[in-house]
Write a protein that binds this DNA or RNA. Structure first.
Lengths: 159, 159
DNA sequence: GGGAGATTGTTTTATATCCAACAATCCAAC
DNA sequence: GTTGGATTGTTGGATATAAAACAATCTCCC
């Protein structure tokens, strides 16, 4: 981690060295920082559209799986189902998704994108692809597949 | 991802396949899921102690850098400084940290662990080490250094 | 000295998130 | 058929998080 030279009075200039101790080499801690940085980077790109990364993934999963239930969506998304309730209410109110009752099971909803939702998803996908290009550049083509495989393994075995 | 056989009526049993579409191969999405899984795994381990991963890192950074300011701590932790205000208030109220005014600069606090805070950190470190062993097992010794280097690179270049 | 601009920590406001509890509904075993 | 247990989506309570605005304070440059 390159850092700028300290200001001449030796006081804080926003980059004074911090001793990370054992954290420096902990995968868990570095995973959190990397995810946080990636999230912030995406958020900058999608700021003008006004949606954050989590919402983008939710929309995409609905678009990819028309008729999906809220519970299945929450699992695919790695979030509790109660987290989705206000989010989907908001999407529905803004006309981005349709919620229809399932025939034969009156508990579940079937979720699907409206044309407006599909258009918004298209815009978000542009941001996401730009973001992925940034990530690919940082990760490097050489290690990409291996890196991705390890991330998936962590999700599968620690979830 | 192994999944149990579908129930014989073909309906949801909590593991029906979901089409991830492009998300499947996006680093950003998989990074989020992996971090989420790692976080949840640590939370299970530290549940009895009653602190979550973010707090553990905060305590450790204070222990490692006695006298650190809140702003420097928030940067090292990858969190906004306003996020720390209620957390540190809670730590101080519970006698885990000491906040003393800095001589010569009446804006900043100097943070340090109390003996009680140090004891709690010790317990949390035990959990964290167990968690790291789990992560090491999943990541594999062979790829560990490379994986860690990529995480650090993402933090440094996208933050 | 004196002021312009930067920095520090707090407050406010708005989301996001989980967990536990809940009502409605379904399913399977009897 | 009935009924006990499972599932679905919602609600309420708690914590976490960021952004913007703010008051107090410091620094730098003249």
């Amino acid at each position: 981690m390159a850092r700028p030279p300290a200001s001449r009075n030796g006081k804080s200039n926003g980059a004074e060295p911090v001793d990370y101790g054992p954290l420096e080499n902990w995968i868990g801690f570095n995973l959190r920082l990397a995810q946080s940085a990636s999230f912030a980077s995406f958020a900058r790109l999608s700021k003008e559209i006004g949606e954050r990364p989590g919402r983008m993934a939710t929309l995409r999963l609905i678009g990819q799986n028309p008729g999906i239930s809220q519970t299945a969506l929450s699992r695919a998304n790695g979030r509790d189902k109660s987290t989705l309730t206000p989010l989907l209410t908001d999407f529905a109110k803004r006309g981005l998704i349709r919620r229809t009752r399932t025939r034969g099971d009156r508990r579940t909803y079937r979720l699907a994108l409206t044309p407006a939702g599909d258009r918004l998803l298209g815009q978000l996908t542009d941001c996401a692809q730009e973001h992925e290009r940034d990530l690919d550049r940082v990760v490097g083509l050489r290690d990409r597949a291996r890196f991705l495989a390890i991330l998936r393994k962590i999700t599968a075995e620690l979830g």
